[in-house]
Write a protein that binds this DNA or RNA. Structure first.
Lengths: 66, 66
DNA sequence: ACTTTAAGTAAAGTTTACTTTACATTTGTG
DNA sequence: CACAAATGTAAAGTAAACTTTACTTAAAGT
């Protein structure tokens, strides 16, 4: 699974810390997500998508390996 | 967070076991998800949404408590 | 009524998400 | 350059997802 968080965050012009605060996680969690260190929960996916005003599928993508 | 899985599954007419197999998890995982026993990963959310031919947001819903 | 299939549930174990703390590196700005 | 802000990264700990096994209950068909 891949994601667009870094790009969407750049579009919105907010820092990892700001995004983290908005969705109530640690900054390291955002950083690790952007680095594809793990698969976030659906709760976070929904919150992030809402934050960016886009559907989950516009931010998180299944890959062939999934 | 709530979800619609049981309803979507009824619409499609498939069993918990069949859905489980399609997205490569155990039947108990599907059962527990339907019973809101835990928050599934985004990977599963994407696969389930794809299986039902609907966006993630049509199947998983944020609540005020989230 | 009997049998089969689907669903509910539970306990123990493994894996992984996520936090906290802490430090290093990069990037932007005066 | 100097300083601050943002990002990268890592290790140790906690919480939670997910599996496996197994037993029970419900529903549906013969």
């Amino acid at each position: 699974m891949k994601n667009n968080i870094k790009v969407e965050r750049a579009i919105k012009g907010i820092t990892q810390e700001e995004l983290a605060t908005k969705i109530s996680v640690s900054r390291q969690t955002i950083n690790a997500m952007e680095a594809n260190k793990y698969v976030p929960s659906t709760l976070l996916a929904l919150k992030i998508a809402r934050e960016f005003g886009k559907p989950v599928e516009a931010i998180f993508f299944l890959e062939d390996s999934d």
